[in-house]
Amino acid sequence: MDTLRASLAIFRKDLLAERRTKDVSTAILLFGFTVAVSFAFAFDPTSDEARRIAGGLLWLSFLFASLLGLNRSFARETANDCLQGLRLMPVDLGSIYLGKLLSNLLFMLAAELVLLPVFNIFFNLNLFERPGWLALILLLGTWGVASLGTIFSAVSANTRMRELMLPMLLLPLTIPVLIAAIESTTILLRGLPMREAELWIKLLAGFDVIFTVLAWLLFDSVVQE
């Protein structure tokens, strides 16, 4: 119960700070948008080809943009050594992870919701034909990136090369998320029956649960000195 209360306090604090500075969501949004535009020069964005590879472009830009957002998000805890302040609190340190995970997930999803229509228009897609499935894929895929991204942003904050470390740690481990999210999004975009995406969606859900629990258990060891 304490853990939940503390996680919510951290989540609310992040929400308030984000409402003031909009650091994290702006970073994700602007970078994601720029990447989306840049992709348009890599191939003919109006062709049928677009429909087949748009899923990949979508998730790659989300993933790269999230790297910036995750770094920004944890920078909040390292400024003024706030993390030390949190470690003084009479709460389980895992609640810091859960709180940050929740806020990172929310900021990433918010930015992605703005980016989706942009992709839809630029690449002439039909993303919103099955909104329920889209929401599910988006949630599970983003959660997967956030689950490891949140703990690795804390790990990389402890190293000498924090900007380099986060992508080096996060990208290889999130390859299953990337594959599953891209495959299921492509199935969605091509108008194929969603039955075909069942395996991928299960994989995403499994990944999310496994790594959220593991990261929560291991977070103590990341911040405890």
Binding site: I151, V155, T159, L173, F211, L214, L218, S221, V222, Q224
Partner: peptide, 10 residues
């Protein structure tokens, strides 16, 4: 500490 965490997750 950090390497062990990554070693497990990896």
């Amino acid at each position: 500490r950090l390497a062990a965490v990554f070693g497990i997750l990896g």
